[in-house]
Each structure stands twice: as C-alpha cells, then as structure tokens.
C-alpha cells in the first residue's frame, strides 16, 4: 500500500491549524462577548487573606469576604480574625476604607469546674466527645452549665490553640487563638465565649443555679453572693439569674472583684500586676488617696503624694481617677495601648 506521506502531513497540519484557529477565535469571541467585569480589588483582597476559610468574618470563606468587602462600602475591612491587624490594614489600603484598630479576640472558657473541683452525677462511658456526652441526659456533670471536659473544643480548633489540662478542662493558648469561634459554636454547653483579648477580668462561671446548688456541685462556681457587685468601683458587675456578670464595656480590669470573690469564680487573666507610681505632675489633690481601695496612696494636701508599693495591688483605679494624669505604671494609664496589652497577654 502506498502511503502519501506528504499529503497526510499537509492535510493533518492544515486540519490541526484550522481547528486550532477556530477554537482560538471561538474562545476569544466568547471571552469578549461574555466578559464579566471582575473587580480587581477582589483578587487583591483575596491574596492578602489567610485562606483558612474559617468563617470568622461571617462570610462563606475568604472568597465571600473578599467580594463583600470590595463591593460593599458598609463592610468593614477588619473582620478577618486570623489575619489580625496586618490583614485589616492591607484590606483597608486596597479598598480605600479606614481600618479601625482591630483588637484581637480570643476564646475564653467560662467554667473552672475541673474534675478535681466539681461533682459528677454519674459515670459516662460513651464516646469521648462533649456533643455525644450531652445526649446522655445533658452530660455527666452535676452542674448543668459546666464544661463537660471531653475536649470537643480542642478537637475542632483549626489552629491547635486549645489543649485539655490534666483535670479535663480546656486551656486556651492566647497566642495561637485567632478568635475564629469554631469552638464557641461546637461547645454544646456554650461555656466558651470569644471576647476581646484586653478583657482580662471575667466571671468564669455560667451557672444559673441558686447559690447553695452551685456550691454543692462545684467549688469554684458563682454563688451569686453579690460581693463583686458591691466592690466594683465602676459598676461593671451585675447580678442576674443567680450569676454575676461583668459588663466588659465598663470593666477597667482593676481586679478588686477577683480578690473579693469567696469562691474564686472570677478570674484575673493578667499575669502580674505592676504597681502604680506618682510622677512630679501631682498637685496633691488627694483624690488618689480617696479612691484607693487598699489605702496605698497617701500624702498631704497640695503636696506630692506617694503610693505605698507594698500595699498597691495594681488595680489602676487611681490612674483612672487622677485629674492630672500624674500616676503611671499600671492599668488605665494613657500610654498603655493595645500592643502593650498584647505583650502582657503573651506572657501568660
């Protein structure tokens, strides 16, 4: 059989060439005719986002947020929790919005009733998962509001920020936690709340049982005695349904309630409090001596006051009240900004 090589070559080359041209033209026409204008900002925002698709921003993944933040001027650029301030700034720059300083949020565990300090109603021997345990009559814990301690939060955490301690209570690593709320959603007892990292004085109890019942179930529960409400100089604590609750907007982290709480249900996340110190700006108004809850500040009217470093508990109330801003060294001082708070929190 005779094979006409030249003919086959020319025909096939011509055919492939023609079909290639047809496809190319067809695609070019389709691309031109059906062009969709994609906002280039979306692409750029998408690139600066971490791509974890965690949903902390409230949109369906990073793509969803990128589209929303580029298209809608109402959507703030600082919703990305894992990306923190750097991403918020980058998005603000791309979209031309102003980035309000984004304060990182972290998960806080609102229960201290670990296996050593709380009572169980029965022995649970099912799957080691809180969502399974809660199906067995609400869980084995005597306190219906407490952490079950089977580590569902630790297992859902995409960042490995939650570990279970030896007494079956979750511990949040604030450095790893991005505030994505996965644990908050997964926890069947709702003992996890995601709060701004600077809110460091919290009532770590969710029990709405009456005082005696709470006391019987758990050594570290809030028994609604009201001591914290009385001692709070900022009226931040209120008592509702047998549970003290600190209004995080009003709380100035002075820590007086922490000391007063008879059951240690209020937790101070501040690792070590620095002492207050009065500078030369003091004009001797005596306000600090009046407000100091531990009588550490003293001095004669119109003369510079001093603070007894032994007595000072670092509550920062005098710093807040001083009209001359003459007291420094502890909370509520003006120099203390978010970055310093972060540094402190990392020392935990």
């Amino acid at each position: 059989m005779q094979i006409d090589l030249v003919r086959i070559l020319t025909v096939s080359l011509a055919f492939i060439g023609i079909i290639g041209v047809i496809f190319g033209l067809g695609l070019a026409i389709a691309a031109a005719k059906f062009a969709v204008k994609v906002d280039p900002k979306v692409e750029r925002v998408r690139e600066v986002l971490p791509g974890a698709n965690c949903g902390a921003c409230g949109y369906a993944g990073c793509q969803g947020y990128a589209e929303a933040v580029a298209a809608n001027p109402e959507v703030p650029p600082n919703l990305c929790a894992p990306g923190k301030a750097a991403v918020a700034e980058a998005i603000a720059q791309i979209t031309g919005k102003t980035a309000a300083a984004v304060e990182p949020k972290v998960a806080r565990i609102f229960c201290q009733g670990d296996s050593a300090r709380s009572v169980k109603r029965f022995r649970y021997e099912g799957i080691k998962d809180c969502r399974a345990a809660v199906l067995a009559g609400g869980g084995d814990k005597a306190c219906a509001y407490g952490c079950l301690g089977y580590g569902t939060c630790a297992s859902v955490c995409p960042f490995g920020a939650i570990t279970m301690n030896e007494y079956d209570l979750p511990v949040v690593d604030v450095e790893k936690c991005t505030g994505c709320r996965k644990c908050e959603i997964a926890c069947p007892k709702k003992v996890i709340e995601v709060l701004p990292i600077s809110k460091q004085v919290l009532v770590r109890c969710h029990s709405l049982d009456s005082g005696p019942v709470t006391r019987k179930n758990c050594q570290v529960g809030c028994i609604a005695c009201g001591s914290c409400v009385k001692v709070c100089p900022f009226e931040a604590v209120s008592l509702n349904n047998n549970l003290a609750r600190i209004d995080i907007e009003k709380c100035r982290r002075c820590g007086l309630c922490v000391m007063k709480c008879p059951t240690n249900a209020i937790m101070d996340y501040i690792p070590h409090r620095t002492k207050a110190y009065i500078t030369d700006k003091c004009n001797g108004c005596t306000i600090c001596a009046k407000v100091c809850p531990v009588n550490a500040a003293s001095g004669v009217l119109k003369q510079k006051h001093v603070i007894d470093q032994e007595r000072c508990i670092g509550c920062g109330i005098c710093v807040d009240k001083c009209p001359k801003k003459a007291i420094i060294g502890t909370f509520n001082a003006e120099t203390m900004d978010i970055s310093e708070i972060l540094e402190e929190a990392k020392k935990v």
């Binding site: 496809f23 067809g26 695609l27 389709a30 691309a31 059906f34």
Partner: peptide
C-alpha cells in the same frame, strides 16, 4: 475548548 467556553459563558 468546550470546557473553557462553557466556563466563560456560564460565568456571564
């Protein structure tokens, strides 16, 4: 080519 075209057209 078909898939690419479908991609473009569907998008619009």
């Amino acid at each position: 080519a078909f898939v690419q075209a479908a991609d473009t057209i569907l998008r619009k």
